[in-house]
Nucleic acid binder design. Structure first.
Length: 521
RNA sequence: GGCCCCAUCGUCUAGAGGCCUAGGACAACGGAUUUUCAGUCCGUGAACUGGGGUUCGAAUCCCCAUGGGGUCACCA
């Protein structure tokens, strides 16, 4: 009989979802889905923050955005709740009592200063620090006296120092530690609350977690946790420690602080700059409020879940020797723990970008429109109420943009199709170079304007033919007119295909803009 | 420093003794296409950390060294 797989991800309410944490969560989720098992979300809020709800919102938001649904946890409930550690104290208390009663844990009355001194002494002599078990030698009367005095104490788990602990990690293989080298960990504070390392063990057992999949930094904790499970009479879950993600161009774990330090690295600079360009327009702050370690950065910039998921899946995992493009279904079907790479993976934002581009290019036009409309609305480039005409216009712009749309917010780089003709800004430098400084440009534009006024129909192929004929008739090179025409009608030196741009704008708007240009020379 | 983990192109990775004169992707570089930009197509350069074993044969197994990293709280 095989036991149904139950996995969990246990975030603490930090106020944002870390992209590396998201990768871990994805792997945990993937393993559950691959096995048709259960994925549980459990909130590690043992250190009682003030505003758990607000700090949790971005985390739930990230899961929802990527479509990583949880089967048990906050908001959905489940048979093993509550799913907030802060509401499970009775379970922890009971477990502590049990260990105490069985002599597997003890009350430690040593003052914190005493413990610190012990530690310092060990360090001074370069010895492995082991807590001194003074309280174990207390007589019963001394102990009851201490309790009567209300002397503060912690509860420590009594590590069996005469043996080793070992686990068979699903990604790292056999790992073992020597109990003789492990200090007795505090499992309950003097205020009666328990520590994470202990709560996790109690929760994993009570929630019948079969696979503890988490980041590598927890590997060391596992020694204590395995011992604790044994002491509590639990069977051991399968552990799988996946490597963390390193910051781009670094060998160190990707952290929020790290990324701030790297904001001027070649790779990340673009990401920060883009945030500073786009987020202010949307009223979302800037690269300080939302940076590339946060999942929300990608969501707000208009990345696709498929792109992020593909990128995250390939960070420390691969299907085979050549498949890069992976729809989620394919990953679910093929995801196994033994294919997780043991070494840390560098977070490569450019590769992420390439997955994103692929998935964006796959997206049907209609969905591109849906994705872009909110950006145009939030920046007042179009009205909040979109009618069919607006929708069609956005569709034409997007069709012309083609591969130029990498993320939805890129639509904001093509404002020329949405701003009023009378106030459309001109790129001054380009205007100077291609129109004012190009001796023949004004005359050519004037004469071309006459032909544009009457040409029928006003569509891209016709305009294309018209301009080429114009070039021939006037004995000029095409470069002598297209640049000027582009700047005159769109205000910019770059953009979509010129004739697409003209036809999208339509005759009237083109003429108006041309007139403005001619008047500005 | 103790304990633990890790080690293939710049980066993500394939590789579980002969299929490897080490494959793919991103990035880089060169060329082609082009009215700009984006793209597309073709091509180029680029790696098994070092040293010992084991073996007929090692990127693959073992040992040592080196390097990188994680962790050592009444944080999670």
């Amino acid at each position: 009989m095989t036991v149904p797989v139950r996995t969990r991800f246990a975030p603490s309410p930090t106020g944002y979802m870390h992209i590396g944490g998201m990768r871990t969560a994805l792997f945990v989720w993937l393993w559950a889905r691959h096995n048709h098992g259960t994925f549980i979300l459990r909130i590690d809020d043992t250190d009682q923050q003030r505003n758990v709800e607000a700090a949790l919102a971005p985390i739930f938001r990230a899961f929802r955005w990527l479509g990583l649904n949880w089967d048990e946890g906050p908001e959905v409930g489940g048979a093993f709740g509550p799913y907030f550690q802060s509401q499970r104290t009775h379970l922890y208390q009971a477990a502590v009592e049990k260990l105490l009663a069985e002599g597997k844990a003890f009350r430690d009355y040593d003052a914190p200063e005493q413990v610190a001194a012990d530690r310092a002494a060990a360090e001074a002599t370069k010895q492995t620090y082991l807590n001194v078990r003074r309280s174990l030698d207390l007589t019963d009367s001394q102990r009851s006296q201490f309790d009567e005095e209300g002397r503060p104490h912690v509860v420590r788990f009594l590590v069996p120092r005469d043996r080793k602990v070992a686990i068979d990690d699903a990604v790292r293989g056999h790992v073992e530690w020597d109990g003789a080298l492990m200090p007795d960990p505090v499992i309950m504070r003097s205020n009666g609350s328990v520590l994470y390392n202990f709560a996790t063990v109690v929760d994993d057992a009570q929630m019948q977690i079969t696979h503890v999949i988490r980041a590598e930094e927890h590997l060391t904790n596992t020694a204590v946790q395995a011992l604790l499970h044994q002491a509590l009479g639990n069977s051991l879950p399968v552990f799988a420690h996946i490597p963390f993600i390193t910051a781009p161009g670094s060998t160190k774990k990707l952290s929020k602080r790290d990324v701030e330090k790297l904001r001027n690295s070649p790779q990340l600079k673009k990401m920060f700059d883009r945030a500073d360009e786009v987020f202010p327009q949307l009223g979302l702050g800037n690269s300080t409020t939302l940076n590339p370690v946060m999942v929300e950065y990608y969501e707000r910039l208009g990345y696709l879940p498929a792109g992020i998921l593909n990128g995250l899946s390939r960070l420390g995992w691969s299907l085979d020797d050549k498949t890069e493009i992976l729809p989620l279904d394919t990953v679910i079907e093929n995801f196994t723990l033994d294919r997780i790479v043991k070494a840390p993976a560098g977070f490569d934002t450019e590769k992420l970008q390439s997955y994103q581009q692929h998935w964006m290019n796959q997206l049907p036009l209609d969905q591109k429109i849906d994705g872009c409309l909110p950006y145009l609305q939030q920046t007042k480039l179009i009205a909040d109420e979109t009618d069919a005409v607006t929708r069609a216009h956005v569709g034409r712009v997007l069709a012309a943009m083609a591969d130029r749309l990498k993320v939805f917010s890129d639509i904001l780089d093509f404002k020329e199709f949405f701003v009023a003709d009378e106030t459309m800004p001109f790129d001054e430098k380009a205007f100077q170079q291609r129109i004012r400084d190009a001796a023949e440009a004004p005359g050519l534009l004037r004469s071309l304007r006459e032909q544009l006024a009457t040409v029928e129909p006003f569509d891209a192929p016709t305009l294309d033919a018209l301009v080429h004929r114009f070039v021939e008739t006037n004995g000029i090179k095409i470069g002598q007119i297209v640049h000027a025409l582009r700047i005159a009608t769109t205000g910019r030196a770059q953009g979509v295909g010129l004739f697409d741009a003209l036809s999208i704008l339509g005759r009237d708007r083109c003429l108006t803009r041309l007139d403005r240009t001619l008047a500005a020379i």
